[in-house]
């Protein structure tokens, strides 16, 4: 596998949140504690030694229980978090759909938010002007586009966010559990659009709690548990293993 075939190449990535035992928020406190050598940290390993490789045009589903590190993994790929150790290579323009409404300003109108969000994704105003009609059309918000975003329902915000992120021709699309918002009809529309984007050769990483969604959209899957990779391979095998996992861990944890 040549290196330039890879859209995403993570090697031994660990993300470790250092939580001070007592929260130190001021410089004064820090100096006092540091002078007494008493700055102690509790380490929380959100990801430990995770290696992921996704080839161009491939789609990877990520499954795991809450707190398994799925979102942290997405944040590392999206460059929001730099890992504590390990190597991250991401080749291509990334469109993150990590949290809908991220980068939206609730006081601005839908129209202004299309441009603001486009700018956040690194697109020029002219570029967004060209795409504007298509975005509004897909989101089905023609009548509301000049109303402030705070008057929108969650589903409407989700539609607008999805329409923008998928319209800008990303090379790598990161989708974190956002398909579950919006009504069934819109969900189907989103799934269709993702399928169409995939045909164009876009790389997809999808986080979902729904095994069906992963099987439908992803060829490969990754199962995370407590920040470690449990299984990695063809989506069918990984999802089957995940569904069939002993549920004792659930009751033990719960």
């Amino acid at each position: 596998m040549a290196a330039d075939d890879l859209a995403i190449d993570l090697r031994d990535v660990s993300v470790c949140y250092r939580l001070p035992r007592e929260r130190i928020t001021t410089f004064k406190e820090f100096m006092i504690k540091w002078a007494r050598r008493r700055v102690e940290y509790e380490e929380l390993h959100a990801l430990s030694q995770v290696s992921v490789r996704v080839r161009r045009g491939e789609s990877l589903g990520v499954i795991g229980r809450n707190g398994a590190g799925k979102t942290t993994l997405m944040k590392v790929i999206a460059r929001v978090l730099r890992p504590t150790s390990g190597d991250v290579r991401v080749n291509g323009l990334v469109a993150p759909l990590l949290e809908l409404g991220a980068g939206f300003d609730m006081e601005l109108s839908g129209r202004e938010n299309v441009f603001l969000n486009g700018a956040i994704l690194g697109h020029s105003r002219r570029d967004m002007q060209r795409r504007f009609d298509g975005i509004v059309d897909f989101s089905e918000l023609e009548h509301f586009i000049d109303a402030p975003l705070r008057t929108y329902s969650t589903g409407m915000v989700a539609r607008l966010g999805f329409a923008i992120a998928t319209d800008v021709n990303p090379e790598i699309l990161l989708v974190d559990e956002v398909l579950s918002v919006g009504d069934i009809e819109f969900q189907r529309k989103c799934t269709e659009r993702i399928e169409r984007i995939l045909q164009r050769g876009t790389t997809l990483v999808l986080v979902s709690h729904s095994p069906e969604a992963i099987l439908q959209l992803c060829g490969q899957a990754l199962w995370l548990s407590e920040g470690r990779v449990v299984a990695d391979g063809p989506a069918r095998d990984v999802v089957d293993a995940f569904v069939a996992r002993p549920t004792t861990t659930l009751s033990a944890a719960g």
Partner: peptide, 9 residues
């Protein structure tokens, strides 16, 4: 902060 935590710029 809300932006910094969610999207890379």
């Amino acid at each position: 902060a809300p932006l910094i935590k969610k999207i890379y710029v």
